[in-house]
């Protein structure tokens, strides 16, 4: 069984500020970490590896420093790493990112299962998995919260819907995105760190991909454009009540009553 896990390096903190003058992000340095949701995808892959002797490749797209994320995946037990890195991939939105990853998957070769985290902590869109599956022409199931069974032909999973659980068999090859909490992610192993420190990583540029039309990648392959960024709004009008606790409790009761929150059908 061959598994590919898609991972992403994200900013360590989402506490970003905006330069009001020119509407750009203020970022001092680029401290990064592996997207926390990807840990669950990696853990899922490791469990399958242990139980079904699978091989696990990790795939990411980003600047050269995202090698750290791949090394971290090695420390959890991934077998090989592929990094899509090219200036021409820059400025990619969901569509261009998914397309580039799909090209990377084609370059890696045959696979049975692709596992993605539910979303990233920087983009927060939770859409790349579904678009990647479309570009590869394979079925996908998002929000997988449990794996019931795996054999050579299919995987049986629970999809976590708001009010329901949908259990289905999904034929290989396929893609799943996994929920936070499907398994408890293992810690990176120092032993594996030592064992993989010299392991070569496969660096892929546009010239290594089946489709070399630069118009399909990066900003050029991105239908959406960020027109501007700005700080979030906060409500302006509010009243503040101060005083002694019981008195505040009384005033809150009256306020709720006045606003008809205490009416019952």
């Amino acid at each position: 069984m061959r598994i590919i896990v898609c991972i992403k390096q994200v900013p360590r903190s989402t506490q970003v500020e905006i330069d009001e003058k020119n509407g750009t992000l203020k970022r001092d340095g680029v401290e990064s970490k592996l997207n926390p949701y990807d840990l669950y995808a990696l853990e899922t892959a490791m469990r399958l590896k242990e139980e079904h002797s699978a091989s696990v490749a990790v795939l990411t797209m980003g600047p050269p420093q995202c090698e750290e994320a791949v090394r971290e995946a090695f420390m959890m037990g991934a077998d090989s790493g592929f990094i899509l890195s090219d200036r021409r991939f820059g400025g990619a939105d969901v569509l261009a990112t998914s397309y580039t990853l799909a090209q990377g998957v084609r370059r890696i070769g045959d696979f049975d299962l692709i596992i993605c985290g539910k979303q990233t902590t920087d983009g927060d869109t939770a859409q790349v998995g579904a678009e990647l599956a479309e570009f590869l022409g394979i079925p996908h199931v998002t929000n997988v919260c449990r794996i019931h069974a795996v054999n050579t032909e299919k995987i049986t999973v629970d999809m976590d819907m708001p009010a329901h659980i949908e259990t289905s068999d999904v034929d290989f090859p396929c893609l799943i995105t996994v929920e936070k909490g499907i398994f408890e992610p293992r810690l990176p192993s120092y032993k594996l760190k030592l064992a993989t420190v010299d392991r070569a990583i496969n660096w892929l540029t546009l010239d290594d991909l089946p489709d070399r039309d630069a118009g399909h990648y990066g900003l050029n392959g991105s239908p959406t454009q960020v027109k501007r960024i700005f700080p979030p709004d906060t409500h302006q009008e509010h009243i503040m009540l101060e005083g002694e606790g019981a008195e505040l409790g009384d005033r809150l009761f009256e306020l709720l009553n006045d606003n008809k929150f205490l009416q019952k059908l």
Binding site: V16, D122, T224, V226, K227, R228, F230, P232, D233
Partner: peptide
């Protein structure tokens, strides 16, 4: 919202 709601992004699909 992006970056955990710390910024808002105005996005178009112009073409």
């Amino acid at each position: 919202p992006a970056y955990g709601g710390n910024i808002m992004a105005h996005i178009n699909t112009p073409r």
